[in-house]
Write a protein that binds this DNA or RNA. Structure first.
Lengths: 158, 158
DNA sequence: GCGATGATACTCGGATATATAATGTCCGAGTATAAGAGG
DNA sequence: CCTCTTATACTCGGACATTATATATCCGAGTATCATCGC
């Protein structure tokens, strides 16, 4: 799995803490976590295309959450970075057998192996879909949230 | 996920059908599924190192299941090919924050994000561990099993 | 005819290339800001 | 003092390198088979 998933998760949790009053530049998030700024920007762009973040260009621009943290699941985030296709992709090698006839009726049913892997993937996605950004924000220790608010210069004046 | 997982699964199901009376060369399995012989051999080697297959060198050699299909889970197979580490690997970027002190007590608890991803991975592994090669063998249509037996020259004399 | 011996073909096993995807970097398009001139 | 204009700094967005991983290939080590030779 790409590192972008971890980066995106941490950034989104941070954005959830900061609130969406004003956007946060990718460069600033990168500085926070000591990450390469340009590549983090690329990952956040993917989240933007997926409708998880909204981006505003120009000065005082940046990224903010597109909707409430309660309505953003981990599955949304992972799918945005990793793509919608499943980890196990069946290439139908059962049909490559010499005597196999692709028109045969047995191939109308899905491959038993692919079905088994698909079942496991569904369980995985179900767990991811059951947890939201709000859950993660709440699970983290308060000290981490406070430190983030301080570092980004919020929370003192608010 | 590597293609080797799909190949290994199909090969192991086939081996389960054929029984472990005499080993099957990797080249023959590759021919069956139109796969590159040398690379399939490499994948089967990984299964051998994991204790799923036993290999016998020399003439009339090849691979056979190391234990009964009921005692080989999909998780065993996937782990053998993909490795034991989880898909999501936490790099502890929460500790890279400037003000973070690695000795701080909050870092004794696991990262909430890593914990969430870990939970999903456990659900995935649980599903994989619940299904055995025997289940897959039984789930496939009888015609596929019969065709395999014919193609490998077994079942007529037995 | 039977056993020992050597040559041979076959198979795994790991070391070595190539292709693909992940990671990392760079520069242009566009916007809000701020300064400055004019009224 | 207020408004319009202009220059500027900032940020995203996608195009372009670089590195790591997966895929594919090749050749050597070792074993069972078979033929051959000797008894």
């Amino acid at each position: 799995m790409s590192e972008g998933v971890e980066w995106g998760l941490h950034c989104c949790v941070t954005l959830a803490w900061l609130g969406d009053e004003e956007p946060v530049p990718a460069a600033r998030l990168a500085e926070r976590f000591q990450l390469p700024p340009a590549y983090l920007n690329k990952c956040l762009q993917a989240l933007g295309r997926a409708g998880i973040l909204t981006s505003t260009p120009g000065a005082r621009g940046g990224f903010r959450l597109a909707r409430a943290p309660e309505r953003i699941t981990l599955l949304d985030l992972v799918t945005a970075i990793e793509g919608p296709e499943e980890a196990f992709r069946c290439t139908e090698i059962r049909q490559r057998c010499a005597e196999a006839n692709p028109a045969s009726r047995e191939f109308l049913r899905p491959c038993a192996i692919a079905a088994a892997m698909h079942k496991a993937e569904l369980a995985w996605r179900k767990e991811l879909a059951a947890q939201t950004l709000a859950d993660l924000s709440a699970a983290a220790p308060r000290s981490a949230r406070d430190a983030a608010l301080r570092w980004f210069g919020r929370g003192e004046n608010d």
